[in-house]
């Protein structure tokens, strides 16, 4: 229970880094969750993040899983609220004034400029993530097959992830 305030601080902070998606926040999340607070090992964080990709709704609800691991169901609730409520209020507020900003010349500049930066943050997050997830030839092969399968086919991504689980059960023990 004594971790609850730290959970609230960490996930509220991380939520504001998710420009363009959750992956942008991954390097900071790894630092805070693994190195600073030692709530999880790196392997555990990567496992939980990956399971989040299978969840319906927002895939970053994996923050609730971290909260649950640290402080049970209250931890899950605090992590989810800290992660989704502050940015939610920001989105609500900006949504209301966005049309009034239509004639503000910097509006388009912000959208245009943040486009490539969001990609850069996601790629940086993905590199941090991939270093922990791709650890040998088998995992590299799984990653490449899923990469091309999801670009070339319309297969549900959740099925590709379950396929990864099957390969893991057989080949990675």
């Amino acid at each position: 229970m004594d971790q609850i305030p730290a959970i609230a601080r960490v996930f509220a902070y991380l939520s504001f880094l998710t420009i363009g998606g959750g992956m942008a926040a991954f390097p900071e999340m790894r630092n805070l969750v693994v190195d600073v607070h030692r709530w999880l090992t790196e392997a555990q964080l990567i496992h939980i993040y990956s399971v989040g990709q299978m969840s319906p709704g927002p895939n970053m609800m994996m923050v609730a899983t971290i909260g649950e691991r640290v402080s049970g169901i209250p931890g899950a609730l605090v992590a989810a609220l800290a992660f989704f409520v502050p940015t939610g209020i920001l989105t609500f507020g900006v949504g209301r004034i966005w049309n009034r900003l239509a004639s503000w010349p910097w509006r388009a500049s912000i959208q245009r400029g943040l486009g490539p930066v969001a990609i850069g943050l996601a790629v940086a997050g993905l590199i941090t993530f991939g270093k922990g997830a791709v650890t040998g030839w088998i995992t590299l092969a799984v990653g490449l097959v899923v990469f091309f399968a999801s670009l070339r086919t319309r297969i549900n991504p959740a099925l590709l992830i379950l396929g990864g689980a099957a390969v893991g059960a057989v080949a990675l023990r």
Binding site: M23, H47, Y49, M54, A122, F129, L140, V142, G164, G168
Partner: peptide, 21 residues
């Protein structure tokens, strides 16, 4: 652990594909 290791590898490919697009 083995299954989740496979899941993590698949997730890497999936997220890479999303950002590639």
């Amino acid at each position: 652990t083995a299954m989740l290791h496979g899941v993590a590898a698949a997730a890497t490919g999936l997220i890479a594909a999303t950002w590639f697009q």
